[in-house]
Simulated scan of single mutants.
Amino acid sequence: MLLNKRIKNYNIILASGSPRRQQFFKDLGLEVEIRLKKVVEEYPPRLYQFEISDYLAQLKALPHKDELRENDILITSDTIVWHQSKALGKPNNRSEAIAMLKSLSGHTHQVITSVCFTTTTVEKTLNHTTNVYFKILSDEEIIYYVDTYEPYDKAGAYGIQEWIGQIGIEKIEGSFFNVVGLPVFEVYRTLEELVNFRPKQ
């Protein structure tokens, strides 16, 4: 039986305001409840690569835990761009977005997304890394993209599905969907495991 039929007895809660992540679940045929709570996205400086996104995905689950009921499956996630031994989050303004894209220009970076699944009895965190190869971008291309698309809600200041990805990314190694915002294959597989593991109420 398909997951969208087997999961009818469960309530999937997506704690994300990202329209891209929400669309992924619609495309999978899975109904989700959007539940948002503010979290200060800070992490210990000792953390490295996927440790950062794992920590933040788990941190985002904390305000929801006391509200979970039987058969709730809470999904929280975080995406970072890892480049030159540091994490790039979302730019705060135009100048930061331009600076981020200039730093990525002509280099390879990693997009790391972590997803935390929380129920009343289980917490499971997965992560996926995709290598992204950018061509050398001209200042004109960078400024045009930032001013036209205003990528302030995107880690690393770009969306691979947008103009900059079409003209600027030479190749990727790993999941394309992960760069958009969610490692869909792994998420779907984990939901199948949780539904199979947890008894129906």
Rank of each mutant, 00 (worst) to 15 (best):
P63E: 05
L62I: 15
K65W: 10
E70T: 11
V39H: 00
E70R: 09
V39C: 02
Y43F: 14
L30R: 04
Y55S: 01
Y55H: 05
E67M: 13
L28C: 01
A57F: 03
Q58S: 10
L36K: 02
E67Y: 15
K65V: 13
V39S: 02
D54Q: 11
Y43M: 02
D72P: 14
L28A: 02
V32D: 00
D66M: 12
K60R: 04
D66G: 15
V32S: 01
Y48T: 09
E41P: 04
D66I: 12
E67I: 12
L59D: 11
V32M: 00
P44A: 08
K65F: 11
D66H: 13
L59F: 09
Y48G: 04
S53V: 11
E33C: 10
E42Y: 09
L28R: 05
L62A: 12
L62C: 11
L47I: 06
K65C: 12
G29M: 05
E67V: 11
R46P: 00
P45A: 01
I52Y: 01
L47T: 05
I34Q: 00
E31I: 09
D54C: 11
N71Q: 14
I52D: 01
E33L: 11
E67W: 12
R69M: 13
Q58M: 12
E41C: 08
G29I: 05
I34V: 10
E42I: 13
E42R: 13
R46Y: 14
I52Q: 02
A61Y: 03
E70P: 09
I34M: 00
L28G: 04
L47M: 06
V40C: 12
L59I: 09
D72T: 06
A61L: 08
H64S: 10
D66C: 13
A61T: 08
E67T: 15
L68V: 08
D54R: 13
L68P: 06
E67D: 15
G29W: 06
P63D: 06
A57W: 02
Q49W: 03
L36G: 03
V32E: 00
L36I: 13
E33S: 10
N71R: 14
P44C: 08
K37L: 10
E51K: 06
S53D: 06
F50G: 08
F50Y: 12
D54F: 04
R46F: 14
S53N: 03
P44I: 07
V39I: 05
V39G: 00
G29F: 07
Y48R: 12
S53R: 01
E51R: 01
L47G: 09
E31Y: 03
F50W: 09
L30G: 03
R69P: 00
P45W: 04
K38Q: 14
K65I: 15
Y48N: 13
E33N: 10
L47N: 07
L36F: 01
D54H: 11
Q58L: 11
L68N: 06
R35L: 14
Q58R: 13
E41L: 06
E70Q: 10
F50L: 09
E51S: 05
P45D: 00
Q49Y: 04
P44G: 09
Q49E: 14
V40R: 10
L30H: 00
K37F: 15
S53M: 02
E51F: 01
K60C: 09
S53T: 11
D72E: 07
E51V: 04
Y43R: 02
L62K: 15
F50E: 15
F50N: 15
